[in-house]
Amino acid sequence: MVHAHDSLIVQTIGRVLIPLIQLFGIYVLCFGQFGPGGGFVGGVIMGTSLVFAILVFGLRGLWQRVVFRVIRGDGVGLLVFAGVGGLCLIGGGEFLNYTDLPLPGIEGATRRFIGIFLAQVGVAIDVAVTALSIVLNLADSSSET
């Protein structure tokens, strides 16, 4: 298993930096429609912050259980993205044609805006969980040898 880093400097810097990195990842995800960024980059930043947390603080107790639950949900992001497309089908249109999202009270361009955002959330979840899962599998194999 991954052990905690024993340097006080690394742990202190990690304690300060990890929440900031996660906040920045969420900002990049939510701001992706107005500036550079989006689902992929936001997901990578959030996944990297989790990897950083694991490398600094190790995997123990409740945190370990949470992480293993998280990496079992590898397909959730893909499901969210494809689910948005399926909702468009239910709304009576083509697959992934966000104009037909069944959202009452919202029309046209705003529906497309919401559809793009939901799809980006799906991409972000998928990328973050995949990055975490690959790093955990690599680290796990390396500690056994």
């Binding site: 992706g32 429609q33 550079p36 992934l96 361009a109 497309r112 805006f113 793009i116 980006q120 991409v123």
Partner: peptide
């Protein structure tokens, strides 16, 4: 699409099926 970032609207709306397969 009310999306000023054209890259996001192209990737996620005009070419959303490509992005789905990339995911």
């Amino acid at each position: 699409t009310q999306t000023p970032n054209v890259v996001a609207s192209v990737l996620m709306d005009y070419r959303s099926l490509d992005t789905l397969i990339e995911t």
